[in-house]
Amino acid sequence: MSTIVDIVMSGLFQGSLYAMIAVGLALVWTTIGVFNFAHGVLMTVGAYIAWQLASSDALGLPIFIALPIALLASAAIGLLMQAAIVRPFIGRPDVVLLAVITTLAAASIFENGTLLIWGPRPMQLPPLAAGTVKIMGIGISAHQLIIILVTPVILAALWFFLTRMRLGLALRAVAQNEDACHLVGLNVAALYGLAFGLAAALAGLAGIFLGGFTFMSPTMGSEPLSKALVVVIFGGLGTIAGPIFAAYIIAFFEAISIYFIGFYWTPALLFAVLILTLMLKPEGLFSRRSRSLA
């Protein structure tokens, strides 16, 4: 019984993190048509900014004040990044390739920048809430529980924004037809910035979630990013819902696999399953052919 609770809790927790990261990747892909390899370092940067604001070794602000500031800062960094290294290539036929190299370069810059500013020493963020909660005989930290509960709310809010609000509709429209967007009077450049900024804020939030749970390091974003890659391959990048489902499925798969097969071989098993899935269904499990949000 406790094993099952353990697996369920672990699946929900990891799934929340993966979903939060993967949704940001899908948001940028569907609107701008580029893949952001700096998404992982945006997590790292968000977590470190929050640390700077909230840690008792630094400014020591309460986490609920530090959190929104850190998210705004992440969004601003994402926005600037978009303007500097993505926007200039929009419209070129090789934009995908150029954006891969510039976002990889940005990842390298930010990773080493974090190392220079905060050093290699592992650090920890204050958790969102202290203490542990007992669920069916299993202790789980309040921090993790909050993440499990809050993530679906945030994802639902994002879904609401993209399907019910005019600005969200505009984001989805940009993904589908840029010229027509100009003709209904949308500010396409601003929408690109918004998509990137929003994705960066989601990445920053994921980083803060992670930083309150494990130790932070300048390379903390790379492993979750590689998991998110697997998630978006499974779920397809073309929609928002696909990666969310895939995130939870993969997290549960991992939790079960770690329990029965062990920690070391789980990545290899996951990858083998991924390759098999792709050979059978190349477009991902839930994706449609076109790029579109929601």
Binding site: A173, N177, G185, L186, S290, S292
Partner: peptide, 23 residues
């Protein structure tokens, strides 16, 4: 109103009209 009318294939009519009222 441009030629060809590809519009936004994955938006509904109602959503598309809401977008029209963006200005």
């Amino acid at each position: 109103v441009s030629q060809g009318n590809r519009l936004f294939p994955d938006l509904t009519i109602r959503e598309t009209l809401r977008l029209g009222a963006f200005p």
